[in-house]
């Protein structure tokens, strides 16, 4: 199943994901109308600044087991197993902030939301844009990210790509540090190197 993956090393801190997310979670679904909506739509992705000022798009990881879900006093947080998404029911939420105390990433916020009962402050976080996904769209933050810091893909494929990348880099570093074992072995390796050079792992 496809999921949103964060590649913080690519993030340039442009913050475009935030208004895109807020718009996707507005009543109007367009940026202009969303800005004049009450309650004001809020993003569920939060761009934080790292120690050197670098950007970090921080969003719900939909952990399993989810600490927020275990901590919820009102039973308002559940996992939609078919979508692998942790969801907060705004009708059941009692705004007690127990989930804020549990979330290791600090991605839960408390405010009014058009999907919640009017005037009620509730816990709000990323819902993987399930509504957009039902329409065949990718999550709004991914759609708007221009530098590939947010991607929507199969995690197994992404992990494999990363493994290949690390392996290739490690191999190069090791070979640079090693003396050839024997001429015959070197000749054998040469063919393999050529194969790797011709077919680099997918970026």
């Amino acid at each position: 199943m496809k999921t949103v993956l964060v590649h913080p090393e690519r993030c340039v801190g442009c913050m475009q994901c935030m208004p895109a997310c807020a718009t996707a979670h507005s009543r109007a679904k367009t940026l202009f109308l969303a800005t004049i909506e009450e309650p004001r739509p809020q993003p569920r992705i939060h761009l934080g600044a790292g120690p050197a000022g670098e950007g970090f798009p921080n969003r719900c990881r939909h952990c399993d087991p989810a600490p927020c879900m275990l901590a919820c006093l009102a039973g308002a947080i559940r996992r939609d197993t078919s979508a692998n998404t942790v969801l907060i029911d705004p009708d059941l939420c009692i705004n007690c902030a127990s989930c804020a105390m549990a979330c290791p990433f600090g991605v839960i916020r408390y405010h009014q939301d058009f999907a919640a009962p009017p005037g009620k402050v509730v816990a709000v976080k990323c819902d993987n844009c399930l509504e957009r996904q039902d329409q065949g769209l990718v999550p709004a933050c991914v759609e708007t990210c221009a530098v590939g810091a947010l991607t929507f893909e199969e995690p197994t494929a992404a992990f494999r790509r990363e493994t290949e990348r690390v392996t290739a880099r490690l191999l190069i570093a090791m070979e640079a540090a090693m003396r050839p074992a024997s001429v015959g072995f070197e000749l054998l390796l040469q063919g393999k190197r050529a194969a790797v050079a011709m077919n680099p792992p997918r970026a």
């Binding site: 934080g48 600090g106 680099p200």
Partner: peptide, 19 residues
Amino acid sequence: PGFNYASLAPMRRVVKSEW
């Protein structure tokens, strides 16, 4: 006041294209 998860996550930056 602006403390968040990223404050604790120093990251390696991509300085050139890598494969």
